[in-house]
């Protein structure tokens, strides 16, 4: 394991310190927590948006704390859901009196911890809604699908809507609509290494790739011989289109790097993915190419497609 770190136990703490040092005007850290909030939180009369999860997905989620985005991100240990008390602190810190929406990726740990925190906050009289993101079509059963890069579309759309002054109910519905219309799938060329264990999550041969990987260094659903980018793009798109009809629709597209994949490769992927989607007569209104939801230093990418309507397109930025 080769990393620019000090002690593995200090990674989370030092990362958060480094973040706040870089952006002191935009964000602050709640004292004695691993919660990053907007420096002007709470914003009176604005719905607060809270997301979070294990760390190791940077820029998710603390990197999305800001204008037209989140109000707080709760940062767990690497690949470990944060605890309810931390989420609860985040909720309290960003409630501007009109309630808080929790944006939760669908992992047992995240769901349970955010749920417990929501209960705690409701007990204190804070209005709380939750939206659970399940965009990863690599998992067959829709209920079990993991939340992956599609989550960022929810941050953006719900974030802009909250900034525009919409109510908690409206934002929760909008976030749910976004979540219902986004589908993602990933492929990995190399695993990630959780610092505390120091070992890769799985091993791949020089000519192998893993299809359908999640964002926690878990193995995917199938191991295959590495193929050219265009064939990989086809496989991912084919899988995604089993779950959505995009013909004559407007869509937004995200080619997300998993942590160590050069932008060069992501653009090569985008070339084929966008070509395939154009062939299906989809109109790509907005494309995001870069690292939005990573898995530490995993190599590979995921493709996310969001089907747009007027409202989603209006709030997407």
């Amino acid at each position: 394991m080769k990393k620019l770190i000090n002690q593995t136990d200090d990674i989370l703490d030092e990362m958060l310190e480094g973040m706040v040092a870089a952006h002191p005007n935009e964000i602050k850290r709640l004292a004695e927590t691993n919660v990053i909030v907007r420096s002007n939180a709470p914003i009176k009369g604005k719905v607060g948006l809270v997301s979070g999860g294990g760390s190791g997905h940077e820029p998710a989620h603390a990197g999305y704390v800001g204008h037209k985005l989140l109000d707080a991100a709760v940062c767990g240990e690497v690949f470990t859901s944060p605890t309810p008390d931390q989420v609860y602190e985040a909720i309290k810190a960003v409630d501007g009196g009109v309630g808080v929406l929790l944006i939760v990726k669908n992992y047992s740990g995240d769901v349970m911890n955010f749920d417990m925190a929501a209960d705690m906050a409701k007990d204190e009289g804070i209005k709380v809604e939750q939206v659970i993101i399940r965009d990863d079509v690599a998992i067959a059963n829709p209920e079990d699908r993991r939340g992956v890069a599609g989550t960022i579309f929810v941050h953006k759309i719900a974030g802009a809507a909250a900034e525009s002054g919409k109510s908690l109910k409206d934002i929760a519905e909008l976030a749910q609509k976004t979540a219902d219309n986004v589908f993602s799938m990933g492929v990995s060329l190399s695993p990630s290494i959780v610092p505390a264990s120091g070992k890769p999550g799985f091993e791949l041969k020089e000519d192998e790739m893993e299809i359908g990987t999640g964002i926690h260094g878990e193995q995917g659903i199938e191991r295959k011989t590495l193929k050219p980018a265009d064939e990989i793009a086809e496989e991912l798109v084919q899988n995604l289109l089993k779950h959505m009809d995009i013909k004559n629709s407007r869509i937004a597209l995200m080619i997300n790097g998993q942590g160590s994949t050069p932008l060069m490769e992501l653009y090569i992927m985008n070339r084929k993915v966008s070509e395939l989607l154009n062939e299906k007569q989809a109109e790509i209104k907005k494309t995001f190419v870069g690292e939005y939801m990573t898995s530490i230093e995993m190599a590979g990418c995921s493709v996310s497609i969001l089907k747009l309507d007027d409202e989603l397109e209006y709030f997407l930025h």
Binding site: G54, T80, S81, T83, Q86, Y107, G109, M112, N113
Partner: peptide, 12 residues
């Protein structure tokens, strides 16, 4: 345990 473990095991 609830406030220090995290993950799935913490709440469980």
């Amino acid at each position: 345990i609830i406030s220090k473990v995290g993950g799935a095991a913490g709440p469980l």
